[in-house]
């Protein structure tokens, strides 16, 4: 095990997979010479050369289309979108093409490709650079969606994504890049998809979260312990496939659940997860499931306003208290 940042863990996963499989290559805006706008691809051009680490024009839709074609042609592209906000420029290739091609062509081809994109709010980047778009992708069949919360998962999930035969959206959180943790050195360390991790066991409430929200949920759980509330924290790790079994088992055990999402609440994934808990655990629930969501607003710039839009540890703590006290 080595201590490293989330950023370096992703870099290591890319490096190991580039070494392991000559069909893996990287493409994206400023990923090579500039080493990535968040420096995730630092050192890769130097080690692997310009054939395999490739700068592209600012043409997001075509970045994804080229990755699709390359994957269809037998390569394993890892495309970087500079931020997930720019995925909106590529939605035609992501949704109409990447997610559909295998099915509409009768299963005759596969697209082993990864689309990496940093996202999330909290850096005062205002409305066009602060979005959490995970619900958009979770809504679309044909895509796997991974959102790591820890450096170890960042490495293990990305390696699994690169080795997968299916298209994977791999969404990184910009505020986690400098977070640190222990990461296995084993180049065969893989984290399977569709297996949530119980970050902390507890008996009173289940908190279901992912990515940075899982980190905040854990913080909230520590604080709530002082109040005598025992929280079980589940980090989903992948939203598609979704580990419904782990969510349900924990909710049955605790009888209460809070679902935390950073994205806007309207038609958000938290509603879907909350429904799944209700449908499977209705008879055993001691209180209705509570949702904690990003506010339904374009992200404001001012720090005073921005923090109100994004779920904080305190927001989660209040939601847990509500559930425990039977307030809906």
């Amino acid at each position: 095990m080595s201590d490293m940042t989330y950023r370096d863990a992703i870099n290591l996963a890319l490096r190991e997979e580039l070494r392991r499989d000559p069909t893996v290559f990287i493409l994206g805006e400023d990923v090579a010479l500039y080493e990535g706008s968040f420096k995730v691809t630092r050192g890769l051009l130097a080690e692997f050369g310009a054939e395999r680490v490739r700068d592209t024009p600012i043409s997001e839709n075509t970045i994804i289309g080229v990755a699709i074609g390359a994957a269809m042609g037998g390569l394993r592209p890892v495309a970087e979108l500079m931020t997930v906000n720019f995925a909106l420029l590529a939605m035609d290739q992501l949704i109409n093409h990447m997610a559909k091609i295998r099915y509409m062509f009768g299963g005759q081809t596969m697209l082993p490709m990864v689309v990496r994109a940093p996202g999330g709010g909290g850096s005062q980047l205002a409305a066009q650079h602060s979005q959490s778009l995970e619900s958009y992708f979770m809504h679309c069949p044909g895509i796997h969606l991974a959102m790591p919360a820890t450096p170890a998962d960042a490495k293990g999930l990305l390696k699994t994504a690169i080795r997968s035969k299916n298209p994977v959206m791999f969404l990184e959180h910009e505020l986690l890049y400098n977070s640190t943790g222990s990461v296995p050195d084993d180049p065969e360390f893989l984290v399977p998809f569709g297996k949530a991790r119980v970050m902390r066991e507890g008996s009173d409430v289940t908190i279901v979260a992912y990515s940075r929200m899982a980190v905040l949920a854990l913080e909230a759980a520590h604080a709530l312990e002082q109040e005598g509330v025992s929280c079980e924290v589940i980090d989903l790790r992948t939203l598609a496939p979704l580990d419904v079994a782990t969510i349900v088992a924990s909710s049955l055990k605790t009888g209460r659940a809070v679902v935390v999402e950073e994205c806007c609440g309207a038609a958000g994934l938290g509603g879907d997860i909350a429904w799944r808990i209700h449908a499977a655990c209705f008879e055993s629930l001691l209180a209705p499931v509570k949702r904690v969501s990003g506010l339904d607003l374009p992200m404001p710039y001012s720090s005073a306003l921005e923090k109100l839009c994004i779920p904080q540890a305190d927001t989660i703590i209040m939601a847990v208290r509500d559930v425990v006290n039977g307030r809906t």
């Binding site: 290559f25 054939e51 839709n61 075509t62 994804i64 289309g65 080229v66 990755a67 699709i68 074609g69 390359a70 994957a71 269809m72 042609g73 037998g74 390569l75 592209p77 035609d92 290739q93 109409n96 093409h97």
Partner: peptide, 19 residues
């Protein structure tokens, strides 16, 4: 999707060069 196949064609051509 009108024009949707063009980027994919470019990617396929890249795979041929790469391989």
């Amino acid at each position: 999707i009108v024009g949707g196949q063009l980027p994919i064609a470019v990617g396929l051509a890249f795979s041929s060069v790469y391989r």
